[in-house]
């Protein structure tokens, strides 16, 4: 990316949400992506918790980007990120204890989530606060949408429900492998194929439209 160029809010936000979607394009944060996505609700909760941490860590790191010495930047990032993870962890323990129990240690593991590190290192450390905020929000929501989609597909086939509601007919025998790690990998792979197909079709369409305009 061209560094000195000024970045406005919306393109940066959409970049994280779609173009450089952390799950389907960057393939970051695979640990929670495969670990907690057995039910759609878990996907939403995990995604939002990560988004919260991502937005604020990006903002703070961006504000401090000229103060943090280069040599100790990684420990400095960890301190910032860990503070927000602790906040969201304590918040969930207090107000959403059941969800916290399901997600378990994956909440604490947000500290080492590579999406957050990657954005701190490659974006927040080089860009002004507002753009970093937009990037955090876009990346976070992009992550939330993708893992919720993944979790919904796995829940539908693995348990016959979606967000806890029965969607499959009564005689449906749940496909247990979808609740296990191999099912996560298979679903992720299939969804990635579909996302790439959609992207390619969309690219071709816009190309055609351009040609039409020229003609």
């Amino acid at each position: 990316m061209a560094e000195p160029q000024k970045k406005s809010f919306l393109p940066v936000f959409l970049n994280g949400l779609i173009t450089e979607n952390p799950t389907f394009t960057l393939m970051l944060g695979m640990c929670p992506t495969l670990g907690v996505t057995t039910a759609a609700m878990n996907g939403v909760a995990m995604g939002l918790a990560t988004t919260f941490v991502l937005v604020f860590s990006n903002l703070i790191i961006s504000l401090l980007r000229n103060i943090i010495p280069d040599k100790v930047r990684i420990p400095a990032y960890i301190v910032v990120i860990a503070s927000f993870v602790t906040m969201i962890d304590l918040f969930m323990q207090a107000f959403l204890p059941e969800l916290r129990a399901v997600l378990g240690t994956y909440i604490q593991l947000i500290v080492v989530n590579c999406i957050i590190f990657a954005r701190a290192e490659s974006f927040a450390a080089k860009n002004p606060p507002l753009a970093s905020l937009a990037d955090g929000l876009g990346m976070g929501l992009g992550f939330t949408c993708s893992i919720t989609l993944l979790a919904a597909v796995r829940e539908i086939f693995g348990s016959g429900t979606c967000f806890g509601l029965q969607v499959m007919p009564a005689g449906y025998q749940p496909m247990a492998i979808m609740n296990m790690v191999p099912g996560g990998f298979i679903t992720l792979g299939v969804l990635m194929i579909l996302v790439n197909v959609i992207k390619r079709v969309a690219a071709r369409r816009s190309e055609e439209r351009k040609e039409e305009k020229l003609a």
Binding site: Q173, P174, M175, A176, I177, M178, M180, P182
Partner: peptide
Amino acid sequence: AVLFVSWGGI
């Protein structure tokens, strides 16, 4: 293997 892990009973 997928069938076996998914529907072990059957």
